[in-house]
Design a protein around this nucleic acid. Structure first.
Lengths: 108, 108
DNA sequence: AGAGTCATTGGCTATTTTACCAATACGCCA
DNA sequence: TGGCGTATTGGTAAAATAGCCAATGACTCT
């Protein structure tokens, strides 16, 4: 594969990768409802705050979220609202896969 | 986070993860144009055939592609065409992020 | 200034992922 | 049947990821 094309797919994979963790998917889903600060998300997720903070930095690094420091808190929101479309995509895939599995079983 | 909800996000992340590698993204993109066998993909990707085969099994395991053995070859195609939507999503995200970066530079 | 809260960073370990090589399995056909 | 092309599987080493704790930085309030 050509270097240019490879770089292109690597850039794409970086974005996908940022969304490839349960906690990070949850965060994206959650902040779609409005800004959340780190401790709020930590409370919901149930992991250590340092873990959540690192997840957030992965998302921020991929350009998906944006952290706004106000006082001692950092409020995160979606920087790219269409990141939500991934959740729709994934839901559609899961639905189709589930249906195909059901059909296979019924056919027996 | 509740166990049920957590499981839900894990299932979603599994699909995302399957699409989170440059080679696998390329494969999905490529077989959208029609069936390809493992050695064809290997040729295009430039990795060892065992590596490509394993990438394919990751995709198959996630329900995204389907391998059809005919003779000595195995022909892979998309089992879930809407997996292509991920590529659109990712492209849109990249475009927006790139534009935001440009705007930041211009504003200086 | 000092104590308390909030978030990030560094350090560390355990786990997972990736890629190669070698070995195996399968089908074709001379 | 033996050899060749095709694909998968097992083994292994290197790299990346995830999570926790501890340390640090930054802000607020008294």
């Amino acid at each position: 594969m050509q270097a240019r094309i490879k770089a292109r797919y690597q850039a794409r994979a970086k974005v996908m990768k940022a969304m490839s963790h349960p906690t990070r998917l949850f965060i994206v889903d959650e902040i779609a409802n409005g800004e959340r600060c780190v401790s709020e998300l930590t409370e919901m997720v149930g992991d250590d705050i340092s873990t959540v903070s690192k997840h957030l930095s992965v998302l921020e690094n991929a350009g998906i979220v944006f952290g706004d420091k106000r006082g001692a808190q950092v409020w995160y929101r979606l920087r790219v609202p269409c990141a939500l479309d991934f959740l729709d995509c994934v839901e559609r895939v899961l639905k189709i896969v589930a249906r195909q599995r059901t059909e296979l079983i019924e056919r027996r």
